[in-house]
Design a protein around this nucleic acid. Structure first.
Length: 451
RNA sequence: GGCGACGUGGCCGAGUGGCUGAGGCAAGGGCCUGCAAAGCCCUCCACAUGGGUUCGAUUCCCAUCGUCGCCUCCA
């Protein structure tokens, strides 16, 4: 069974399942106000690999991932561009899922939208007010975090230490809060802002409430796993948890956080630093599978540098796997080599050790290639194991494509020229195909081409 | 100020108290090939610095230096 690092206990421990055979996962999704960046790509790929792996081991996975479609950033952009805010959220969500599709990220089983859960959020906030944990000010409703016993558990910070820190940052809404660490549950609307009715006046929900309502609503109390980027640990996840704890509800049983994408200088890519790189741009320049490969070769909890050199290395590594898929396309199907898969699972079950698992994948490819060269029968089981591992990674290999008729004709002419030992003609045909972007592999049994 | 991560070969990036050290990319040599490509084989043998623990440390401990993150916008 899978063991994962748990942020709450700061240990690697077994992912206990509330219901045998099924996994309930909540993943914090994007706020839809701009194009997806590399960090979004990393998070969704990490959890897509998690999901594929869990499914590959035979578990049913329910993955709930929200869309935050009301938020200050959305309103600010709408105002700046003088457009309806829904136009922005609809457009950005479409771009998001198109990008995820290209990355090969499977759509979550549930995609709840914050704006569809406002009534539920209002009800939850009312409860918090009723039990004296939430309080009303002249600009909204806040949660009294001091009333939450183990506030700071996830971020491993004590409330008093947090209050001392923060350097020169401004405390949002400081003048209205009883305690600077309190966070807003409901924001009263200013004129012209989108709003929903509530007992405290028209307004909109604070950021952290939606995930509490949607995760508990769709997955129920004590769901198995809550995921997101390291930067969500605090304040977002801490504050989600605080609300659930304040209500006396069992929240996530296990917390998983992925590391940052850093640039060539090792700095985090983020909105605040203004060095965000766009995921869509990456996919225009590289095979989207390259990003998945790059991430598989690093551990999900560490930082990863996404630069030109890394992406090119990953692209070539992926191309090697495609070559393998092409040259084993005709290999008879067989049961996958059990020893290989056992080793693979052992590595993956140890906190999703994809770097070690990809090492097993490449080693198996090499062994299978060698077996194929020497005509040994074990190639079938090894090739089947490779296919299994790729499935578990969500990595789709591309064997030789259907090629256009004119290309097929050139290939046939090339083989004919070689048979006739007209090597000058053969070489020129090959050069032509190569310059048209085809990878030409000439073997005794004939020529294959692929992109 | 508080909390935390990291420093590995030409590059990226795992991992381990010894059995001389994943994997990818790059480079060099070889096999194969008409020549290439693809594939296979071989080579290039590293753990920031200074102490300590130990029979033995890259791995554990302490210190130092350096890089980075979080401390209410963030995947």
């Amino acid at each position: 069974m899978l063991h994962l690092y748990d942020t709450a206990t700061r240990t690697v421990r077994e992912l206990a399942l509330r219901e045998p055979g099924a996994v309930s996962v909540y993943l914090c999704g994007p706020t839809v106000y701009g194009p997806p960046h590399l960090g979004h790509g990393r998070a969704t790929l990490v959890y897509d690999v998690l999901r594929r792996y869990l499914e590959w081991t035979g578990l049913r996975v329910r993955l709930v991932s929200n869309i935050t479609d009301i938020d200050d950033s959305i309103i600010n952009r709408a105002n700046a561009e003088n457009r309806p805010w829904q136009e922005i959220t609809h457009k950005c969500e479409a771009v998001w899922f198109e990008a995820m599709g290209r990355l090969g990220v499977a759509r979550p089983t549930d995609v709840p939208h914050a704006t569809d859960y406002v009534a539920e959020m209002v009800a939850m906030i009312a409860q918090l007010v009723d039990i004296g944990r939430g309080y009303i000010t002249n600009d909204g409703v806040y949660l009294n975090v001091a009333s939450v016993e183990d506030y700071g558990l996830l971020s491993n910070q004590r409330l008093t230490d947090m209050l001392e820190g923060g350097g020169d940052r401004d405390v949002v809404g400081a003048e209205n809060k009883r305690n600077p660490a309190d966070f807003v549950l409901w924001k009263l609307a200013k004129p012209g802002e989108p709003s929903w009715p509530s007992p405290w006046g028209d307004g909109r929900p604070g950021w952290h409430s939606e995930c509490v309502v949607m995760s508990l609503g769709l997955l129920g109390e004590g769901f198995d796993l809550h995921c997101g980027g390291m930067d969500l640990k605090f304040p977002h996840h801490e504050n989600e948890r605080a609300q659930a704890v304040a209500l006396g509800k069992r929240f996530a049983n296990h917390w998983m956080h992925n590391g940052f994408v850093v640039d060539a200088e090792g700095e985090k890519m983020s909105k605040s630093l203004g060095n965000v790189s766009n995921l869509v741009d990456l996919m225009e320049q590289y095979d989207p599978r390259s990003y998945r490969m790059l991430l598989l070769q690093a551990h999900y909890r560490g930082p990863v540098s996404v630069g030109r050199e890394n992406l090119e290395a990953a692209t070539k590594a992926t191309a090697g796997l495609d070559s393998f898929a092409s040259r084993t396309a005709e290999v008879a199907s067989a049961d996958p080599d059990p020893t290989v898969l056992e080793r693979f699972r052992e590595r993956m079950d140890d906190d999703l050790d994809t770097p070690a698992a990809t090492a097993i994948l490449f080693e198996t490819v090499r062994r299978a290639n060698a077996a194929l060269d020497s005509g040994e029968p074990e190639v079938a089981g090894l090739a089947a194991a490779v296919r299994e591992m790729c499935t578990a990674f969500g990595l789709v290999l591309v064997a030789a494509d259907d090629v256009p008729a004119e290309v097929a004709a050139s290939v046939a002419a090339l083989d004919a020229a070689r048979a006739a030992k007209d090597f000058a003609l053969a070489d020129s045909l090959r050069a032509e195909l190569q310059s048209a972007g085809w990878l030409v592999e000439t073997t005794k049994s004939g020529t294959t081409v692929r992109r």
